[in-house]
């Protein structure tokens, strides 16, 4: 089950990436975001980073080990945003 914070991020993913046919509530918190069922790629990572910076003022950085971990799952992405947002 998604937490409330995870649901907000899940909805942001669906909106930012135009994931028609994907219900935000059904994105598994611990399933891999990339290379998994959603079929996301590096352009999506850029779109996600842009959406997150605009909505939460949090900048993603790839040379940062934390970002790499953040993109693993919905749960880790949510935790990253929660930790870093203003």
């Amino acid at each position: 089950m998604q937490t409330a914070a995870q649901h907000i991020i899940a909805q942001l993913l669906v909106d930012a990436l135009n994931l028609e046919g994907v219900n935000a509530a059904e994105i598994e918190p611990d399933a891999p975001l990339f290379g998994g069922g959603l079929g996301l790629d590096s352009i999506d990572a850029l779109e996600i980073a842009l959406a997150i910076s605009q909505k939460f003022g949090v900048q993603m950085q790839a040379d940062d080990e934390q970002t790499r971990k953040a993109f693993a799952t919905l749960a880790s992405l949510t935790e990253f945003v929660e930790t870093h947002k203003n």
């Binding site: 990339f34 998994g36 990572a45 970002t67 790499r68 693993a72």
Partner: peptide
């Protein structure tokens, strides 16, 4: 590439 790690892990 930040995305290569999950890709490798899951063999996609």
């Amino acid at each position: 590439n930040p995305l290569s790690a999950p890709n490798e892990q899951h063999g996609q």
